[in-house]
Design a protein around this nucleic acid. Sequence first.
DNA 1: TATACGAGCGAACAGATGTTCGTGTCAAGG
DNA 2: CCTTGACACGAACATCTGTTCGCTCGTATA
Lengths: 213, 213
Amino acid sequence: MARALSQRQRAILEYIERFLDENGYPPTIREIQHDLRISSTSVVDYNLNVLEQRNLIRRNRNISRGIELVGRRSAERRVIRIPVVGQIAAGQPLPVLEEVDPSNVDDHIELSADLVGKQPDGLFALRVKGFSMVDALISDGDIVVLRRQETAENGETVAVWLRREQETTLKRFYHEGDRIRLQPANAMMDPIYTTPDNVEIQGKLVTVLRAVS
Amino acid sequence: MARALSQRQRAILEYIERFLDENGYPPTIREIQHDLRISSTSVVDYNLNVLEQRNLIRRNRNISRGIELVGRRSAERRVIRIPVVGQIAAGQPLPVLEEVDPSNVDDHIELSADLVGKQPDGLFALRVKGFSMVDALISDGDIVVLRRQETAENGETVAVWLRREQETTLKRFYHEGDRIRLQPANAMMDPIYTTPDNVEIQGKLVTVLRAVS
DNA sequence: TATACGAGCGAACAGATGTTCGTGTCAAGG
DNA sequence: CCTTGACACGAACATCTGTTCGCTCGTATA
């Protein structure tokens, strides 16, 4: 088992990798045969079996193009793709998610999973307009990643729509008796106190991103 | 073109994504048909054509499993993997990159390429300790991505080591005559003026990341 | 020399799969 | 009421594709 791969086996393996990168789907036995100038499909089959025994690929019998490269997908899995569905500014509410066709959003960002918590569900991103959130250490041009939710635990940073003020803001949320305290992330700033009927929670802050020009 | 996808089209798209993740190769029309309880392969074919016109997938005619998810592979390629080599704090210089064995760094972050500029070379990341950089809208626990460089253009945000003060800071850099102005990103803060021999540029700020607990 | 075995050949076979086409349904609009 | 277009059906068809099998060749090995 310690034997090295034959030149042909190496060539086949490299061919599969390249094919997969270029096409997004695996090659057929005949494509391998043709492009590598192998005289018979059975030779390809023979060598694919060798590669499978070496645990370099996995074959799915009786399935066309049923070749998987072992160990390839797992690394790519931990990258989350998040749609950028609009912008967030002090004087305007968040875009209504349901009105955004996720398949028509062509603006995306990608992050490793550990930056966005456990589940990648319900995540969306917004571009920050203006400087109304510097107290949350968030500036114009930043991208914020939020998870859609309508309630908040004490201490969570949430995007809230203040009904009376007609304003969106990002603050730490504290329910204190019959009032709500919205605490800026910047400790040097003073909190806002308001009533529950005035706040409409739009989502929880998950990640802040700033790409410096 | 502004029309939303039908429920069935969305289901097919999601199915293809899931299938691809689980199997490493795309599904056949009949697999889609069967698992989604669609009565005819031609219905699948019809909807796949719609998805292709929307530029969500690419189909390769007369090829089994010839379905590609547009933007999936190419997007994954542009994901940059950046090593987190240490931490940055006001009172300590940056770790010397050459002393860090890159193969021993098991802490990494992943970002889409457009967040870090054109080339992925010379990039490294640091965890921010302390609150000495709130004036740059950077707080304790943030991760900063830097590109190693020893000089700076006017206006670039750089990590500098101030020799006399024995201190690391992140500021916008301006060379003004025979002195240097280090301008906090937060417009409400005052700049620092110092002399060129006191500043040691360690890298240029590329991205700031904040994962909110 | 006889035997074993890895490796390769070529052809035929059987499924697996994409394509096509006539037909049907339904809602919107004239 | 008729037309149109989006969407769906189901069956027949034509390839595409994996599998199998008998055979050859060269190099060890007994």
